[in-house]
Amino acid sequence: MHETMVAQSIFESIQQLTNEHNARAVEATISCGQFNPINDEVLNFAFDLIAKGTPCEGMKLNIKHIPLSASCKQCGVRFDYDVYKPGCPDCNSMEFDFKEDAPLLLEEIELEPN
């Protein structure tokens, strides 16, 4: 995933709100799926750099990785699909039905008045 651009996009969305509410951001929660994964370390690093000297400086960024639910076409078992260790946990089959992968979302932010 492209963490710097994601960090910039999150920052712009939050900055709009801190300006509107004359507040500073203390915490934000984002979520991503399995086929658009985020590297937490890289995103945090990029966000901290961008946020320096702004009302977002020091903000805690929570990153949720939403599992991708799959069901095995062979044995029917439901499981959380791991892109890097594919295979049904029960029968090792490689044929699955997937639920839709989670989009990259800015879910929630918490502001504190200045």
Partner: peptide
């Protein structure tokens, strides 16, 4: 103050 957004992150693109 918590604000719920559920906004797509790369929405500009």
């Amino acid at each position: 103050m918590k604000i719920s957004l559920n906004k797509k992150i790369l929405d500009k693109n």
